[in-house]
Nucleic acid binder design. Sequence first.
RNA 1: GGCGGCGUAGCUCAGCUGGUUAGAGCAGCGGAAUCAUAAUCCGAAGGUCGAAGGUUCGAGUCCUUCCGCCGCUACCA
Length: 469
Amino acid sequence: MTFFLTGTDENASKNVRAAEEAGVDPKTFVDGLVEGHWRPLPARVGASPDFFIRTTDEGHHRFVQEFVQRIYDNGHIYEDNYAGLYCVSCEEFKTEDQLTPDGLCQEHGTKPEWIEERNWFFRLSAFQEQLLRLYDEQPDFVVPDFRYNEARSFIEGGLRDFSLSRAGQPWGVPVPWDPEQVVYVWVDALINYLSALTYARPGEDLRAEFWPVAHHLIGKDILRFHCVFWPALLLAAGYDVPKQIFVHGWLLFGDRKISKSSGNVIEPLELTEIYGIDALRFYTARVTRFGQDGNASADDLHERYERELGNDLGNLLSRTTAMIARYREGRIVPAPWESPFRAELAALAREVPERLDKYDLSGALEAIWIVIRSLNRYVEERAPWQLAKDTTKSEELDRTLYDLADGLRAVAIALAAYLPETSPRILSALGQPEDLAWEGVAYGWTVAAEGIEPAEPLFPRVELETAVA
RNA sequence: GGCGGCGUAGCUCAGCUGGUUAGAGCAGCGGAAUCAUAAUCCGAAGGUCGAAGGUUCGAGUCCUUCCGCCGCUACCA
Protein backbone atom coordinates (compact mmCIF):
# COMPACT_ATOMS: atom_id res chain seq x y z
CA MET A 1 0.00 0.00 0.00
CA THR A 2 1.11 3.48 -0.76
CA PHE A 3 -0.16 6.88 0.16
CA PHE A 4 1.21 9.63 -2.03
CA LEU A 5 0.96 13.03 -0.36
CA THR A 6 1.63 16.46 -1.74
CA GLY A 7 0.17 19.89 -1.17
CA THR A 8 0.74 23.51 -0.34
CA ASP A 9 2.38 25.42 2.48
CA GLU A 10 0.18 28.45 2.97
CA ASN A 11 0.74 29.97 6.39
CA ALA A 12 3.55 32.25 5.38
CA SER A 13 3.22 35.88 6.36
CA LYS A 14 4.08 36.95 2.83
CA ASN A 15 0.68 35.67 1.82
CA VAL A 16 -0.90 38.20 4.15
CA ARG A 17 0.94 41.01 2.42
CA ALA A 18 0.15 39.76 -1.03
CA ALA A 19 -3.50 39.51 -0.02
CA GLU A 20 -3.46 43.06 1.24
CA GLU A 21 -2.03 44.25 -2.02
CA ALA A 22 -4.70 42.35 -3.87
CA GLY A 23 -7.29 43.83 -1.57
CA VAL A 24 -8.68 40.56 -0.28
CA ASP A 25 -8.46 38.63 2.96
CA PRO A 26 -5.67 36.06 3.21
CA LYS A 27 -7.85 32.98 2.98
CA THR A 28 -9.56 34.20 -0.16
CA PHE A 29 -6.16 34.99 -1.58
CA VAL A 30 -4.62 31.56 -0.98
CA ASP A 31 -7.82 29.83 -2.07
CA GLY A 32 -7.48 31.44 -5.43
CA LEU A 33 -3.83 30.53 -5.68
CA VAL A 34 -4.26 26.95 -4.63
CA GLU A 35 -7.44 26.04 -6.42
CA GLY A 36 -6.52 27.97 -9.52
CA HIS A 37 -3.00 26.72 -9.84
CA TRP A 38 -1.43 24.36 -7.34
CA ARG A 39 -4.13 21.77 -6.90
CA PRO A 40 -4.47 21.11 -10.64
CA LEU A 41 -0.69 20.97 -11.03
CA PRO A 42 -0.07 17.28 -10.26
CA ALA A 43 -2.50 16.24 -12.98
CA ARG A 44 -0.62 18.37 -15.47
CA VAL A 45 2.41 16.15 -15.08
CA GLY A 46 0.42 12.97 -14.83
CA ALA A 47 0.88 12.62 -11.08
CA SER A 48 -1.94 11.23 -8.98
CA PRO A 49 -1.47 12.02 -5.30
CA ASP A 50 -3.75 10.24 -2.84
CA PHE A 51 -4.24 13.44 -0.95
CA PHE A 52 -3.51 17.10 -1.50
CA ILE A 53 -2.90 18.78 1.82
CA ARG A 54 -3.30 22.48 2.43
CA THR A 55 -1.76 23.79 5.63
CA THR A 56 -4.83 26.00 5.97
CA ASP A 57 -6.94 22.87 6.40
CA GLU A 58 -8.79 22.79 9.68
CA GLY A 59 -7.57 19.23 10.29
CA HIS A 60 -4.00 20.36 9.86
CA HIS A 61 -4.39 23.22 12.31
CA ARG A 62 -5.89 20.95 14.90
CA PHE A 63 -3.08 18.44 14.61
CA VAL A 64 -0.32 21.05 14.62
CA GLN A 65 -1.66 22.41 17.89
CA GLU A 66 -1.78 18.98 19.39
CA PHE A 67 1.74 18.28 18.14
CA VAL A 68 3.39 21.40 19.53
CA GLN A 69 1.44 21.01 22.77
CA ARG A 70 3.06 17.62 23.20
CA ILE A 71 6.50 19.14 22.75
CA TYR A 72 5.58 21.82 25.23
CA ASP A 73 4.31 19.29 27.73
CA ASN A 74 7.48 17.29 27.30
CA GLY A 75 9.44 20.32 28.41
CA HIS A 76 11.30 21.11 25.20
CA ILE A 77 9.92 24.60 24.72
CA TYR A 78 10.83 27.78 26.58
CA GLU A 79 10.23 31.47 26.23
CA ASP A 80 12.88 33.94 25.08
CA ASN A 81 13.49 37.05 23.05
CA TYR A 82 14.65 37.04 19.51
CA ALA A 83 15.99 39.85 17.41
CA GLY A 84 17.40 39.78 13.93
CA LEU A 85 16.99 40.40 10.26
CA TYR A 86 14.19 38.49 8.66
CA CYS A 87 13.50 37.87 4.97
CA VAL A 88 9.78 37.60 4.49
CA SER A 89 10.17 35.84 1.15
CA CYS A 90 12.39 33.13 2.63
CA GLU A 91 10.50 33.14 5.91
CA GLU A 92 13.92 32.87 7.47
CA PHE A 93 16.12 34.83 9.79
CA LYS A 94 19.29 36.05 8.14
CA THR A 95 22.75 36.86 9.30
CA GLU A 96 24.61 39.68 7.65
CA ASP A 97 26.91 37.54 5.58
CA GLN A 98 23.91 35.74 4.19
CA LEU A 99 23.02 38.99 2.52
CA THR A 100 24.42 40.82 -0.47
CA PRO A 101 26.86 43.67 0.13
CA ASP A 102 23.89 46.03 -0.09
CA GLY A 103 22.17 44.14 2.68
CA LEU A 104 19.63 42.45 0.44
CA CYS A 105 18.48 38.85 0.47
CA GLN A 106 20.58 36.79 -1.94
CA GLU A 107 17.62 34.74 -3.07
CA HIS A 108 15.03 37.41 -3.47
CA GLY A 109 16.93 40.66 -3.74
CA THR A 110 14.62 42.21 -1.21
CA LYS A 111 15.50 44.06 1.95
CA PRO A 112 15.12 41.95 5.09
CA GLU A 113 13.31 43.42 8.05
CA TRP A 114 14.53 43.93 11.57
CA ILE A 115 12.43 41.87 13.89
CA GLU A 116 12.56 41.86 17.63
CA GLU A 117 10.08 39.84 19.56
CA ARG A 118 9.31 37.49 22.41
CA ASN A 119 9.07 33.95 21.09
CA TRP A 120 8.73 30.37 22.11
CA PHE A 121 11.93 28.48 21.49
CA PHE A 122 12.48 24.86 20.71
CA ARG A 123 15.34 23.22 22.57
CA LEU A 124 16.98 21.75 19.48
CA SER A 125 20.37 21.78 21.20
CA ALA A 126 19.16 19.03 23.52
CA PHE A 127 18.71 16.63 20.61
CA GLN A 128 22.19 16.55 19.15
CA GLU A 129 23.10 13.24 20.73
CA GLN A 130 19.86 11.57 19.77
CA LEU A 131 20.14 12.76 16.19
CA LEU A 132 23.69 11.54 15.85
CA ARG A 133 22.65 8.18 17.20
CA LEU A 134 19.84 8.10 14.66
CA TYR A 135 22.28 8.83 11.84
CA ASP A 136 24.64 6.15 13.09
CA GLU A 137 21.99 3.51 13.41
CA GLN A 138 20.28 4.37 10.15
CA PRO A 139 22.97 5.05 7.54
CA ASP A 140 20.32 5.27 4.83
CA PHE A 141 18.15 7.72 6.72
CA VAL A 142 19.18 10.39 4.26
CA VAL A 143 20.10 9.58 0.67
CA PRO A 144 22.14 10.09 -1.49
CA ASP A 145 25.09 9.57 0.81
CA PHE A 146 26.65 12.96 0.19
CA ARG A 147 23.48 14.55 1.52
CA TYR A 148 23.64 12.25 4.53
CA ASN A 149 27.14 13.52 5.18
CA GLU A 150 26.03 17.08 4.78
CA ALA A 151 23.21 16.72 7.28
CA ARG A 152 25.34 14.78 9.70
CA SER A 153 28.16 17.26 9.68
CA PHE A 154 25.67 20.03 10.28
CA ILE A 155 24.48 18.23 13.40
CA GLU A 156 28.04 17.57 14.52
CA GLY A 157 28.78 21.25 14.20
CA GLY A 158 26.43 21.93 17.09
CA LEU A 159 22.77 22.79 17.16
CA ARG A 160 21.19 25.97 18.36
CA ASP A 161 17.70 26.32 19.68
CA PHE A 162 15.35 27.99 17.29
CA SER A 163 12.25 30.04 17.50
CA LEU A 164 9.18 27.94 17.06
CA SER A 165 6.67 30.77 17.09
CA ARG A 166 6.09 34.23 15.70
CA ALA A 167 4.46 37.09 17.53
CA GLY A 168 1.96 39.56 16.19
CA GLN A 169 0.97 37.46 13.20
CA PRO A 170 -2.73 37.15 12.53
CA TRP A 171 -2.18 34.35 10.01
CA GLY A 172 -1.17 30.81 10.85
CA VAL A 173 -1.72 28.22 13.54
CA PRO A 174 -2.16 29.78 17.00
CA VAL A 175 0.12 28.46 19.71
CA PRO A 176 -2.27 26.55 22.00
CA TRP A 177 -0.94 27.91 25.28
CA ASP A 178 -0.30 31.41 23.92
CA PRO A 179 -2.83 32.34 21.21
CA GLU A 180 -1.10 35.69 20.69
CA GLN A 181 1.54 33.78 18.81
CA VAL A 182 1.38 31.54 15.80
CA VAL A 183 3.52 28.50 15.07
CA TYR A 184 6.49 29.41 12.95
CA VAL A 185 5.49 28.60 9.39
CA TRP A 186 8.32 26.17 8.72
CA VAL A 187 7.44 24.13 11.76
CA ASP A 188 3.78 24.03 10.90
CA ALA A 189 4.57 23.00 7.33
CA LEU A 190 6.81 20.12 8.35
CA ILE A 191 4.08 18.65 10.46
CA ASN A 192 1.95 18.14 7.34
CA TYR A 193 3.46 14.73 6.73
CA LEU A 194 1.88 13.50 9.91
CA SER A 195 -1.20 15.68 10.13
CA ALA A 196 -2.46 14.59 6.72
CA LEU A 197 -2.64 11.02 7.92
CA THR A 198 -5.08 11.99 10.64
CA TYR A 199 -7.74 13.51 8.42
CA ALA A 200 -7.11 12.64 4.76
CA ARG A 201 -9.75 9.93 5.00
CA PRO A 202 -12.61 11.07 7.20
CA GLY A 203 -13.06 8.80 10.16
CA GLU A 204 -9.79 7.01 9.57
CA ASP A 205 -6.42 7.38 11.21
CA LEU A 206 -3.80 6.35 8.68
CA ARG A 207 -0.91 6.79 11.05
CA ALA A 208 -0.93 3.15 12.02
CA GLU A 209 -0.35 2.13 8.44
CA PHE A 210 1.83 4.90 7.05
CA TRP A 211 3.93 6.13 9.95
CA PRO A 212 6.83 5.79 10.50
CA VAL A 213 7.31 3.99 7.19
CA ALA A 214 7.04 7.30 5.33
CA HIS A 215 9.55 8.35 2.71
CA HIS A 216 10.08 12.05 2.15
CA LEU A 217 11.11 13.49 -1.16
CA ILE A 218 12.61 16.93 -0.81
CA GLY A 219 14.76 19.41 -2.66
CA LYS A 220 18.33 20.02 -1.55
CA ASP A 221 17.51 23.56 -0.48
CA ILE A 222 15.38 22.39 2.41
CA LEU A 223 17.68 19.69 3.68
CA ARG A 224 18.24 21.14 7.14
CA PHE A 225 14.58 21.47 7.87
CA HIS A 226 13.80 17.93 6.92
CA CYS A 227 16.93 16.10 7.96
CA VAL A 228 17.65 17.87 11.21
CA PHE A 229 14.80 19.99 12.57
CA TRP A 230 11.97 17.68 11.62
CA PRO A 231 13.38 14.52 13.20
CA ALA A 232 14.18 16.52 16.33
CA LEU A 233 10.64 17.84 16.52
CA LEU A 234 9.29 14.34 16.09
CA LEU A 235 11.49 12.98 18.83
CA ALA A 236 10.48 15.85 21.09
CA ALA A 237 6.81 15.12 20.47
CA GLY A 238 7.33 11.42 21.06
CA TYR A 239 6.98 10.22 17.50
CA ASP A 240 9.18 7.96 15.43
CA VAL A 241 11.15 9.57 12.63
CA PRO A 242 10.35 8.75 9.00
CA LYS A 243 11.95 5.80 7.33
CA GLN A 244 13.95 7.70 4.80
CA ILE A 245 14.49 11.10 3.26
CA PHE A 246 15.52 11.40 -0.34
CA VAL A 247 17.10 14.69 -1.27
CA HIS A 248 16.93 15.54 -4.92
CA GLY A 249 18.87 18.17 -6.78
CA TRP A 250 17.61 20.96 -8.93
CA LEU A 251 16.53 20.86 -12.49
CA LEU A 252 18.26 23.77 -14.13
CA PHE A 253 16.35 25.00 -17.11
CA GLY A 254 18.76 27.12 -19.00
CA ASP A 255 20.49 28.51 -15.97
CA ARG A 256 17.68 29.10 -13.61
CA LYS A 257 16.43 26.76 -10.95
CA ILE A 258 12.93 25.52 -11.53
CA SER A 259 10.96 26.00 -8.38
CA LYS A 260 7.67 27.11 -7.05
CA SER A 261 8.93 30.24 -5.33
CA SER A 262 10.94 31.53 -8.28
CA GLY A 263 7.82 31.18 -10.37
CA ASN A 264 9.39 29.80 -13.51
CA VAL A 265 7.71 26.43 -13.20
CA ILE A 266 5.10 27.38 -15.77
CA GLU A 267 7.33 27.70 -18.75
CA PRO A 268 8.64 24.12 -18.77
CA LEU A 269 5.15 22.84 -18.15
CA GLU A 270 3.99 24.47 -21.32
CA LEU A 271 6.23 22.01 -23.11
CA THR A 272 3.74 19.30 -22.26
CA GLU A 273 1.34 20.96 -24.65
CA ILE A 274 3.81 20.42 -27.45
CA TYR A 275 5.44 17.13 -26.55
CA GLY A 276 2.94 15.62 -24.16
CA ILE A 277 3.07 14.72 -20.50
CA ASP A 278 4.94 11.49 -21.10
CA ALA A 279 7.75 13.22 -22.90
CA LEU A 280 8.27 15.61 -20.02
CA ARG A 281 8.19 12.84 -17.43
CA PHE A 282 10.62 10.84 -19.49
CA TYR A 283 12.89 13.78 -19.96
CA THR A 284 13.13 14.78 -16.31
CA ALA A 285 14.18 11.24 -15.41
CA ARG A 286 16.53 11.01 -18.36
CA VAL A 287 18.34 14.28 -17.96
CA THR A 288 19.22 14.19 -14.28
CA ARG A 289 21.32 11.69 -12.50
CA PHE A 290 20.36 10.16 -9.12
CA GLY A 291 20.23 13.07 -6.71
CA GLN A 292 22.34 15.41 -8.81
CA ASP A 293 21.30 18.65 -10.42
CA GLY A 294 20.22 18.29 -13.99
CA ASN A 295 20.71 20.60 -16.91
CA ALA A 296 17.60 20.81 -18.98
CA SER A 297 16.81 22.80 -22.07
CA ALA A 298 14.09 22.98 -24.67
CA ASP A 299 16.58 21.94 -27.34
CA ASP A 300 17.72 18.92 -25.43
CA LEU A 301 14.16 17.91 -24.75
CA HIS A 302 13.39 18.18 -28.43
CA GLU A 303 16.45 16.14 -29.28
CA ARG A 304 15.63 13.32 -26.90
CA TYR A 305 11.98 13.36 -27.86
CA GLU A 306 12.96 12.79 -31.44
CA ARG A 307 15.89 10.43 -31.03
CA GLU A 308 14.89 8.35 -28.07
CA LEU A 309 11.13 8.44 -27.86
CA GLY A 310 10.41 8.82 -31.56
CA ASN A 311 13.19 6.82 -33.16
CA ASP A 312 14.24 4.23 -30.61
CA LEU A 313 10.88 3.42 -29.08
CA GLY A 314 8.15 4.82 -31.33
CA ASN A 315 9.72 3.61 -34.51
CA LEU A 316 10.34 0.20 -33.00
CA LEU A 317 6.64 -0.21 -32.46
CA SER A 318 5.91 1.08 -35.95
CA ARG A 319 8.23 -1.35 -37.69
CA THR A 320 7.20 -4.27 -35.52
CA THR A 321 3.48 -3.83 -36.07
CA ALA A 322 4.02 -3.09 -39.74
CA MET A 323 5.90 -6.36 -40.21
CA ILE A 324 3.30 -8.33 -38.31
CA ALA A 325 0.63 -6.82 -40.52
CA ARG A 326 2.61 -7.35 -43.69
CA TYR A 327 4.10 -10.79 -43.17
CA ARG A 328 1.51 -12.41 -40.94
CA GLU A 329 -1.73 -10.73 -41.89
CA GLY A 330 -1.82 -8.98 -38.53
CA ARG A 331 -1.66 -12.16 -36.49
CA ILE A 332 0.61 -12.68 -33.52
CA VAL A 333 1.31 -16.36 -33.10
CA PRO A 334 2.70 -17.28 -29.68
CA ALA A 335 6.06 -18.81 -30.45
CA PRO A 336 8.18 -18.71 -27.33
CA TRP A 337 11.50 -20.46 -27.61
CA GLU A 338 14.97 -20.33 -26.10
CA SER A 339 15.19 -16.69 -27.02
CA PRO A 340 17.98 -14.43 -25.79
CA PHE A 341 15.25 -12.18 -24.47
CA ARG A 342 14.39 -14.65 -21.76
CA ALA A 343 17.49 -13.70 -19.84
CA GLU A 344 17.43 -10.10 -20.93
CA LEU A 345 13.90 -9.46 -19.69
CA ALA A 346 14.51 -11.40 -16.50
CA ALA A 347 17.47 -9.14 -15.79
CA LEU A 348 15.38 -6.09 -16.56
CA ALA A 349 12.62 -7.21 -14.20
CA ARG A 350 15.23 -7.50 -11.48
CA GLU A 351 17.23 -4.38 -12.15
CA VAL A 352 14.49 -1.78 -12.52
CA PRO A 353 12.84 -2.28 -9.11
CA GLU A 354 16.24 -2.53 -7.52
CA ARG A 355 17.18 0.86 -8.87
CA LEU A 356 13.81 2.42 -8.17
CA ASP A 357 14.13 1.36 -4.54
CA LYS A 358 17.22 3.51 -4.46
CA TYR A 359 15.42 6.39 -6.18
CA ASP A 360 17.64 5.86 -9.19
CA LEU A 361 15.02 6.85 -11.72
CA SER A 362 17.55 7.62 -14.40
CA GLY A 363 19.42 4.36 -13.95
CA ALA A 364 16.24 2.32 -14.13
CA LEU A 365 15.22 4.14 -17.27
CA GLU A 366 18.62 3.54 -18.80
CA ALA A 367 18.27 -0.17 -18.08
CA ILE A 368 14.98 -0.20 -19.97
CA TRP A 369 16.52 1.69 -22.84
CA ILE A 370 19.25 -0.89 -23.23
CA VAL A 371 16.54 -3.45 -23.96
CA ILE A 372 14.94 -1.14 -26.49
CA ARG A 373 18.23 -0.75 -28.30
CA SER A 374 18.71 -4.46 -28.13
CA LEU A 375 15.33 -5.01 -29.79
CA ASN A 376 16.23 -2.65 -32.61
CA ARG A 377 19.48 -4.51 -33.09
CA TYR A 378 17.55 -7.76 -33.13
CA VAL A 379 15.47 -6.55 -36.04
CA GLU A 380 18.62 -5.98 -38.07
CA GLU A 381 20.21 -9.25 -37.09
CA ARG A 382 17.18 -11.35 -37.99
CA ALA A 383 16.08 -9.25 -40.96
CA PRO A 384 12.46 -10.43 -41.04
CA TRP A 385 12.08 -9.11 -44.59
CA GLN A 386 14.64 -11.69 -45.69
CA LEU A 387 13.04 -14.49 -43.68
CA ALA A 388 9.71 -13.65 -45.26
CA LYS A 389 11.09 -14.42 -48.70
CA ASP A 390 12.06 -17.94 -47.74
CA THR A 391 9.19 -20.28 -46.92
CA THR A 392 11.51 -22.70 -45.12
CA LYS A 393 12.22 -19.96 -42.58
CA SER A 394 8.65 -19.46 -41.56
CA GLU A 395 9.19 -20.64 -38.02
CA GLU A 396 12.16 -18.38 -37.61
CA LEU A 397 10.06 -15.46 -38.77
CA ASP A 398 7.33 -16.34 -36.30
CA ARG A 399 9.85 -16.46 -33.50
CA THR A 400 11.40 -13.19 -34.48
CA LEU A 401 8.14 -11.32 -34.72
CA TYR A 402 7.00 -12.88 -31.49
CA ASP A 403 10.17 -11.81 -29.69
CA LEU A 404 9.79 -8.26 -30.94
CA ALA A 405 6.17 -8.02 -29.88
CA ASP A 406 6.92 -9.65 -26.57
CA GLY A 407 9.91 -7.47 -25.85
CA LEU A 408 7.92 -4.37 -26.66
CA ARG A 409 5.08 -5.55 -24.47
CA ALA A 410 7.42 -6.13 -21.52
CA VAL A 411 9.14 -2.80 -22.08
CA ALA A 412 5.78 -1.04 -22.17
CA ILE A 413 4.98 -2.37 -18.72
CA ALA A 414 8.40 -1.45 -17.39
CA LEU A 415 7.94 2.06 -18.73
CA ALA A 416 4.48 2.61 -17.31
CA ALA A 417 5.67 4.85 -14.49
CA TYR A 418 7.54 7.04 -16.94
CA LEU A 419 5.09 6.94 -19.83
CA PRO A 420 1.65 6.39 -18.30
CA GLU A 421 -0.16 7.49 -21.45
CA THR A 422 2.05 5.64 -23.90
CA SER A 423 2.33 2.25 -22.23
CA PRO A 424 -1.32 1.28 -22.75
CA ARG A 425 -1.09 2.47 -26.34
CA ILE A 426 1.77 0.08 -26.99
CA LEU A 427 -0.07 -2.83 -25.43
CA SER A 428 -3.18 -2.03 -27.35
CA ALA A 429 -1.31 -1.70 -30.64
CA LEU A 430 -0.01 -5.21 -30.05
CA GLY A 431 -3.45 -6.55 -29.21
CA GLN A 432 -2.40 -7.29 -25.65
CA PRO A 433 -4.45 -6.79 -22.48
CA GLU A 434 -3.69 -3.48 -20.79
CA ASP A 435 -2.41 -5.16 -17.68
CA LEU A 436 0.49 -3.30 -16.14
CA ALA A 437 1.24 -5.81 -13.37
CA TRP A 438 4.98 -6.11 -12.94
CA GLU A 439 5.00 -9.90 -13.44
CA GLY A 440 4.45 -9.09 -17.09
CA VAL A 441 8.03 -7.84 -17.35
CA ALA A 442 9.16 -11.32 -18.40
CA TYR A 443 9.58 -13.28 -21.57
CA GLY A 444 6.71 -15.12 -23.19
CA TRP A 445 3.62 -13.41 -21.81
CA THR A 446 2.38 -12.20 -25.15
CA VAL A 447 -0.89 -13.84 -26.08
CA ALA A 448 -2.24 -14.65 -29.53
CA ALA A 449 -3.71 -11.66 -31.29
CA GLU A 450 -5.26 -10.79 -34.60
CA GLY A 451 -5.92 -7.70 -36.59
CA ILE A 452 -2.64 -6.00 -35.74
CA GLU A 453 -2.24 -2.96 -37.93
CA PRO A 454 0.74 -0.68 -38.48
CA ALA A 455 0.65 1.50 -35.39
CA GLU A 456 0.18 5.22 -35.46
CA PRO A 457 3.42 6.97 -34.48
CA LEU A 458 3.67 7.08 -30.69
CA PHE A 459 5.68 10.28 -30.77
CA PRO A 460 5.01 12.12 -33.99
CA ARG A 461 7.51 14.62 -35.25
CA VAL A 462 7.25 18.09 -33.82
CA GLU A 463 8.17 20.90 -36.15
CA LEU A 464 10.90 22.96 -34.61
CA GLU A 465 9.11 26.22 -35.35
CA THR A 466 6.28 24.91 -33.22
CA ALA A 467 8.70 23.88 -30.54
CA VAL A 468 10.38 27.24 -30.37
CA ALA A 469 7.09 29.09 -30.32
C1' G B 1 38.83 29.79 7.29
C1' G B 2 36.98 24.39 8.15
C1' C B 3 34.80 19.85 5.83
C1' G B 4 32.74 17.14 0.99
C1' G B 5 32.98 16.91 -3.92
C1' C B 6 34.21 17.86 -8.96
C1' G B 7 37.67 18.60 -13.32
C1' U B 8 37.79 11.64 -18.26
C1' A B 9 36.65 11.76 -26.32
C1' G B 10 33.71 18.16 -29.76
C1' C B 11 29.10 17.82 -26.19
C1' U B 12 26.56 15.16 -21.75
C1' C B 13 28.51 11.85 -18.66
C1' A B 14 29.91 5.99 -16.69
C1' G B 15 34.24 4.15 -14.67
C1' C B 16 33.01 -0.35 -7.36
C1' U B 17 37.39 -1.92 -2.91
C1' G B 18 44.36 0.03 -8.10
C1' G B 19 45.64 -4.86 -12.88
C1' U B 20 44.91 -7.18 -20.02
C1' U B 21 44.52 -2.50 -25.95
C1' A B 22 40.11 3.88 -20.77
C1' G B 23 33.75 3.09 -21.81
C1' A B 24 28.38 4.81 -23.27
C1' G B 25 24.96 8.22 -25.60
C1' C B 26 24.87 12.38 -28.99
C1' A B 27 27.35 15.15 -32.93
C1' G B 28 30.99 14.23 -36.99
C1' C B 29 33.20 10.37 -40.68
C1' G B 30 32.69 5.63 -43.59
C1' G B 31 29.55 1.53 -44.75
C1' A B 32 25.10 -2.01 -44.66
C1' A B 33 20.06 -2.65 -44.95
C1' U B 34 15.07 -1.18 -46.70
C1' C B 35 10.34 -3.70 -42.05
C1' A B 36 9.66 1.43 -40.14
C1' U B 37 7.86 8.27 -37.91
C1' A B 38 14.43 9.04 -43.92
C1' A B 39 13.65 5.71 -38.67
C1' U B 40 17.54 1.31 -37.90
C1' C B 41 22.20 -1.46 -37.67
C1' C B 42 27.58 -2.05 -38.24
C1' G B 43 32.57 -0.01 -38.41
C1' A B 44 36.58 3.24 -37.92
C1' A B 45 38.27 7.58 -35.83
C1' G B 46 38.46 10.59 -31.60
C1' G B 47 41.09 11.24 -24.80
C1' U B 48 49.30 12.62 -22.39
C1' C B 49 41.81 10.59 -17.79
C1' G B 50 42.95 19.44 -14.86
C1' A B 51 48.80 20.18 -13.72
C1' A B 52 53.30 18.50 -11.22
C1' G B 53 55.50 15.11 -8.06
C1' G B 54 55.21 10.39 -5.14
C1' U B 55 53.79 5.12 -3.48
C1' U B 56 53.57 0.43 -6.39
C1' C B 57 55.63 -4.93 -10.48
C1' G B 58 51.36 -1.87 -12.16
C1' A B 59 47.16 4.32 -10.98
C1' G B 60 41.43 8.14 -14.01
C1' U B 61 41.47 4.56 -9.73
C1' C B 62 45.92 5.63 -3.48
C1' C B 63 49.20 9.97 -1.15
C1' U B 64 51.17 15.26 -1.45
C1' U B 65 51.11 20.01 -3.66
C1' C B 66 49.13 23.40 -7.21
C1' C B 67 45.32 25.48 -10.73
C1' G B 68 40.05 25.95 -11.86
C1' C B 69 34.93 25.10 -10.54
C1' C B 70 30.85 23.83 -6.97
C1' G B 71 28.32 22.40 -2.33
C1' C B 72 27.84 22.55 3.00
C1' U B 73 29.60 25.15 7.18
C1' A B 74 31.66 29.36 10.46
C1' C B 75 30.48 35.71 13.21
C1' C B 76 23.52 33.01 17.36
C1' A B 77 17.66 30.39 12.62
